[in-house]
Write a protein that binds this DNA or RNA. Sequence first.
DNA 1: ACTTCATTTGGTCTTTTTGCCAAATTACAA
DNA 2: TTGTAATTTGGCAAAAAGACCAAATGAAGT
Lengths: 110, 110
Amino acid sequence: MNIEKEKDLASSRARIMKALAHPTRIFMVELLSRKEMSVGELTAAVGADVSTVSKHLSLLKQEKILSHTRDGKTVNYSLICPCILEFIHCLDEVISPDAGKGSSCSLVRK
Amino acid sequence: MNIEKEKDLASSRARIMKALAHPTRIFMVELLSRKEMSVGELTAAVGADVSTVSKHLSLLKQEKILSHTRDGKTVNYSLICPCILEFIHCLDEVISPDAGKGSSCSLVRK
DNA sequence: ACTTCATTTGGTCTTTTTGCCAAATTACAA
DNA sequence: TTGTAATTTGGCAAAAAGACCAAATGAAGT
């Protein structure tokens, strides 16, 4: 692969990473991996202003991580691809594969 | 796990994500997964100001993703844990597991 | 049509992130 | 010690991201 293509790929990856690179957003993705939730429920769970939560959600939607369906006057969000959760957990599993063993990889402490 | 612990974990994960959430940084990690490189080599490869590259590197160092050793007047950077690369590729593999198949998961296009 | 509840959008302010320049540091060689 | 190449640091301006309020929109129910 040539260097320009590699840079493009890096940009694509960085966009996704960036969408997940926020405590509230990553937490919401974790919550949504368990069950779909409305904006109100998510707002209560994360403890922030509704408008803030809504904007986080639309960012994740824009990056095609979440989808939403309207049900009456509430809007439910859910993971488009539940495997994104695996990706996040990949951080814990892969980056600190042997948390107890005193390995050199210990980026995320549980 | 209680909700506060979950939020803490989300923050830890977000810190790592954030360190990787930049085209240049993610590209450098990819390069460094192949072989260790000096600041000068990386600068040439990514095409940015040396000082900029140096700052990106120290951010990655701070997050314990990279380590460095001095060799004469050059400094060589390398991945502390090569498995971080697997994590990044996890984005491609896990998030769009079946790129050709017309799946609903297609965040990263190659 | 009028209200009410849930969510989104617009606007603004603050904080963080980037990127470059110039100056400082480090190591080595003459 | 002087000079030179490689890297880091400090400082500053521009750009992006985040948070909150207020106003707008959407979907029922009265």
